[in-house]
Design a protein around this nucleic acid. Structure first.
Lengths: 215, 215
DNA sequence: AGCAGAAATTGCGTGCACGCAAGTTTGCGC
DNA sequence: GCGCAAACTTGCGTGCACGCAATTTCTGCT
């Protein structure tokens, strides 16, 4: 019951989506990201250019989608699946880390970091966890604080985005002042630090929910 | 020293910016938002269409900018100006509330809520506080936790965005279930609730900074 | 089976965002 | 004042996002 809706139609749709993003990534790697037109991607996937835009709202989205895959729903699923006896903050951190630790082809990363437009699109993918995550958190809070759940989900997404941004950035000036700016650090460390800043808020809301339950 | 840089040039630039956003708002109110071309706005402000896009990255930005004005820098300034003996969370909430409580022309709000594209652009303005706010928070934390400051600033922006979203939304289904969904509430209440969810995180980081200072 | 209607694809047209390479204005040291 | 360099404006060209309406492809029902 994960997919909902009837079969053959949805199947074809996913097939098209996958074909599009794979074609996009392949072409971008072959020719460089600026030498790929939407028209080319559509043709390689065997659909019309107009159809491309029914699936992806920008030229860059298909490329980064090939790299990020279904990251968003997986994070939410992991949080939802986690039992109630582990801290929400911990479950969340673990899920996020796992989804960003998958072995990556270094070529793909260079592709993305090399183009400003792709970097921006990549950062935007962090926002995709927001809705599913809000639902998962909301369920844990017992539907009493929908707004709170949304805020926390949005904050987590923002934190992830911030960490990715820090990690990706092409290190502008070598060392502006003597401020020990922590060059970039490893992605897992950055993600952990970023999410750690939100942990108190997550703990607090979880505590409130627990009190409300025990009443 | 608020403006930096030399005089006449910057002066003209701001004049152009103001002229553009005022023209945009006026035309949108007169004709409806969909009947205003970038070309029209540029002409009304006495610049070329190409110049319009040197100031605003989208057609909608100029219109919402006329409504939100310099909200972003004001919030950051208020936080920076607040003395160290008030809770960061309180200073922040007060500053945000003040900037969103300014008396608004109801016509302007209807204009924005009426168009999906304008709604989206309006929500995006919440992100503008992020950078100045990160700087202000970073200063309060003593430059030791730049990443943390960024994360919190981004989270605050996300919270504000979430509150605005909840407030703006055209109330889809009347009442999906018996869940008492809190129809929309007043904007100040929504903002307070949204920011309250982040207060524990703000308190915690502030406490850490205090300990580090007293060492 | 077959058919009514829902859903997806496609072509077309329009307005837009933005890189680039002139041209024009402003700031500043002499 | 003078001239040069930096900043801003502008026209042009290109690719793109997306509304719309016609067409094709699927699905559930009888």
């Amino acid at each position: 019951m994960t997919t909902r809706r009837t079969g053959l139609r949805e199947q074809k749709k996913q097939a098209t989506r996958v074909a599009l993003r794979q074609a996009a990534l392949r072409l971008a790697l072959e020719r460089g990201p600026d030498a790929v037109r939407v028209e080319d991607i559509a043709e390689a996937a065997g659909v019309s250019p107009r159809t491309y835009n029914n699936y992806f709202a920008s030229r860059e989205q298909a490329i980064v989608a090939a790299v990020t895959a279904e990251r968003e729903s997986r994070v939410a699923a992991a949080v939802a699946a986690g039992p109630a006896d582990v801290r929400l903050a911990d479950a969340l951190t673990a899920a996020v880390l796992e989804q960003h630790t998958a072995p990556r082809d270094p070529g793909e990363l260079l592709l993305i970091t090399g183009s400003p437009a792709l970097r921006a699109a990549y950062l935007d993918t962090a926002a995709a966890i927001e809705d599913p995550l809000a639902a998962a958190i909301g369920r844990r809070l017992g539907d009493a604080g929908t707004l709170t759940a949304r805020v926390l989900a949005a904050s987590v997404a923002a934190a992830v985005r911030t960490a990715l941004q820090q990690w990706i950035q092409p290190s502008a000036a070598p060392h502006p002042a003597g401020g020990l700016v922590v060059p970039s650090g490893s992605l897992p460390d950055l993600l952990r630090s970023a999410l750690a800043a939100l942990a108190p808020a997550l703990d607090a809301v979880e505590e409130q929910a627990r009190q409300r339950t025990h009443e």
